[in-house]
Nucleic acid binder design. Structure first.
Lengths: 215, 215, 215, 215
DNA sequence: GATGAATGAGTGTTCATTCAT
DNA sequence: GATGAATGAACACTCATTCAT
C-alpha cells in the first residue's frame, strides 16, 4: 500500500522482473485452473515453458514467497480496477454499493485472478497449518467493517446491525457469487442486485419502518 | 438424501460398518484440524489407531470414496440437527429464518463437522481438477433457491430479487460467518442477526415502501 | 543401556526388523566407504538392492532416525566386543589399558563399523546445525573421565592431571589411530603401545620421581 | 611449504587476489559456523556479499580448488603463529612441548580458522570419495614423526615407542581438545597440561626407572 | 573480465495405491 | 477377509557448474 511498492530492498534487474512476472502469471493461471492444492512447481514451470522447477526456486525463496507474489499481483490488479469506481461514489451507501458492484464486475474482467486469489485464501497454509495469506492481510473485512461503522455513526446506515458481522456477510456473499459464476445472469445485473440486497439490509429504520428486530 | 442412505447396495457386515464409521470419524477430525490439503491417509490412520493406510484403501475405493462418505456423514448430522428446527417454523419467512439460525447454531454444536465439510467443498478436487463434492450435490443452494421462489409466488418474499442469486448470497454469508467464527458474539445472537439481515433484504415492497431499486 | 534395549515400544514384525537391519547394514557400509557427507538414501538403497529411497523413509522416520539406528547398532557391536575384555581386567590401571587395547583391537575386527561411527560423530548435524549424535550420547568421554577420577582418588593414577582433559586426549588419540590405520603395525601391538603411552602419562609421582610439572 | 606459496604459477591481478581472499575468508567463516557438510557456494556468496555463486566458480576451478585455497590460508596463519614459538624452544623435548602448547594456544587466537581446518580434514571428499586434503598434505604427522625419531636418536626421547604412532596420538589428542573446547579450562593451562602428558609419555627410561613395558 | 541467469541432477520425504500372504 | 510391506511417482528445494552477454 506504500506509494512505490515495487521499489523494495533488492533492486531487481529488468530481466529478473520479467521472469518473475512470467512465473507469477503462470502460477495464477494454474491455480485458477486446477486449484491451489493440485498446483505444483512442476505444473507452473510447464505452463511457463520453463525447463525445470529449480528455475522457480531460483527466483522465489519458496512456495510461500511465490504465493505472496501472486497475492500482491492480484491485489494490484483488483485495486487498480476497483479503487476509481469506489472513489467516484457518493456517501457511505453509495460507496458500499460501488464496492459490491465493482467487486462482482471485477469477476467479469479478471475471472482468473479472482479465482486464484480465492483459492489461496481458502487453501494456502504453511507448515504450521496457519494461513499463508489471511483475510486481514488483504484487509477486506477490516476496511469494510470500519466503513460500515462510520456509516452508522453518520446515520447513513441503520444502527441495529453489528458492523463486523455484516462485513463478513457481505464478503461471504460476494465470494460465493464469484465462486459460483451464476450462469445466465450478466455480471453488471448481478452486482447491482447484490448491492440492492445489502442496501435494503443496512438501510436505517426511518426508511424501513417496520424492522422485525432491533437488538 | 434417500431414506436410508447407509443401507446402500453392498450389504455390509456389522464389523465393516464399524470400521468405516471409525475411519470416517477420524477423517472428519483430521480434515477439520489440519485442513483438507494436509490430510493424508497416513494421518487419518494414525488418528484412527490403524496400523497402516492400506486398511483405509481396503474399506474405501479411493480418496474420493472416503470424501464422499465423510460428506454423507456430515450431511446426516447436519440434517438431523436442522430439519426439526426448520419444520417447526411457520411460513416461508419463518423457515428462511429458521434455516439460517439453525445453520449458524449448528456451528456451536458440531464445529468439527462443519469445518470439515467446508474444507471439502472448497478444496477437494479429483484428478481432472473438478470438485469432488460440489455445492449442488449437497443440494443446499438448490433447495434454498426453490424455497425462495416458492415464497415469492406466495407473496411472502419480495419479487424483485433473483432467487438463485439470493440463495447464493445467503449460503456465502453463512459460510463466511462459520469460517470466521466471529469472536465476542455468541452463536445464537449471530444467527439471529444474520437472519434479520436477510429478512430485511427479502421483505416485500409493501412492508418496505421506499425500496431503492426494483429490477 | 537398558537390559533389553531392543524391546522398545513399537513391537516390530520379524520381516520389518529384517528390513531395518538390512538397511542399517547398507548404511554402515556406505558411510564407511564414501563418508557421511556423500552418503544419500539413494546410495544406501542401491547397496541394499532396494528399488526406491521411499522404502527407507517407510522404515525410518527420517535421516536422523536412520543415523540413530546405525549408531545404536555400532555401539551394540562395540560394547559386545569390548565389555568382556574390560571386565576381565584388574584395577583402574588395568581397565584403562584394557579399554584402549580393546578399542584399537576393535578396529581390526570391525573396521567398517568404526569408520562409520567416526564419520557420524564428526559430521552428522541436524537442520539446526547441532550434532545428531554427540559424544556424550555414546558416553565415551563421560565414562572415561569418571574412571580416571575414581582411579585418582584410589591412588592408582597420579593426581596432577585433569581427568576430563586426559579423557579427551585418550579418546582423540585412539580415534586418530583408528582413522589413520597405521600401516605396517599390527593392531595388537598398536593397542599395546598406545596403552603404554597413557600408562606412563597417568602413573603416580611415586613411580615417576622427577615429574616436570604438577599443577 | 614453499617459501612463497601465494606467488604460484598464474600471476594474479591485485583485484583478483583481493576477491579470492574475500571469498576464502567467507568460506572459512561459513565452514566454521555451519560445518563443511552444510557449506555451499550460496552461503559463502551470501556472507561475502556476492550477488551470485557464479562469481566463486569464476575465481576457483571448483569446490576442491576453493577448499585447497582455504587450507593454504589456514596453514599460513597457523604456521605464522606457531613457527616462532617452536623455533624459540630448546631441544627436542622443548620443541615438542612448544609445538603442543602453540597448537592449543592457536585455538584461542584463531578458533574459526582451526575449526574450519578440522572440518575440512574430516569431511572434504572428492567425487571418488577420497579425502581432498589428507593429513599428510598439511604435513603435520609427517614432520612430527621425523621430529620424534630424531629426538629418539639424540637420546632425548625414550626409544620404546614408535614415532609414527606417537605422532598420530599427539595429533589426535590435540585435535580432540580443540574440537571439544573444554569449558572451565583456560587454553594456556590446557596446552601446558597436554604437553606435560606427552612429556611424561616420551621421557627416556633413565628418568623413568620402572617403565612397565618396553617393546 | 565479470556477472546474472539458467541448468538439471540430486536431496529427503510424502503420497495413495497395490499386492502377496 | 484382512494386513503389513512395498511401490514409484510426485513433492519442494538445493546444489555446483556453465554460459551468453
Amino acid at each position: 500500500m506504500s506509494a512505490k511498492p515495487e521499489r523494495q530492498r533488492p533492486e531487481r534487474t529488468f530481466i529478473e522482473s520479467a521472469r518473475r512476472a512470467q512465473i507469477v502469471t503462470a502460477a495464477i493461471e494454474t491455480i485458477a485452473e486446477v486449484g491451489y492444492t493440485k498446483t505444483s512447481f512442476a505444473k507452473i514451470a510447464k505452463r511457463a515453458r520453463l525447463s525445470s522447477t529449480g528455475m522457480i526456486s531460483y527466483h522465489f525463496a519458496g512456495k510461500e514467497d511465490l504465493v505472496g507474489a501472486v497475492t500482491e499481483e492480484v491485489m494490484r490488479v483488483a485495486t487498480e480496477f476497483m479503487q476509481p469506481r469506489i472513489r467516484a461514489a457518493q456517501g457511505y451507501t453509495g460507496m458500499l454499493r460501488a464496492y459490491i458492484e465493482a467487486n462482482v464486475e471485477l469477476l467479469a474482467h479478471h475471472p482468473v485472478h479472482l479465482r486464484a486469489l480465492l483459492e489461496i485464501l481458502n487453501n494456502a497454509r504453511n507448515a504450521a497449518g496457519e494461513p499463508v495469506v489471511d483475510a486481514t492481510t488483504i484487509s477486506r473485512i477490516g476496511l469494510l467493517t470500519a466503513h460500515l461503522r462510520d456509516g452508522q455513526r453518520a446515520g447513513e446506515f441503520a444502527g441495529f446491525f453489528d458492523p463486523g458481522l455484516m462485513a463478513t456477510a457481505v464478503s461471504g456473499a460476494i465470494d460465493a457469487v464469484i465462486t459460483s459464476r451464476p450462469p445466465g445472469l450478466d455480471p453488471a445485473a448481478c452486482g447491482r442486485e447484490l448491492a440492492d440486497t445489502f442496501a435494503r439490509a443496512t438501510r436505517p429504520c426511518s426508511e424501513n419502518p417496520d424492522d422485525p428486530k432491533d437488538t
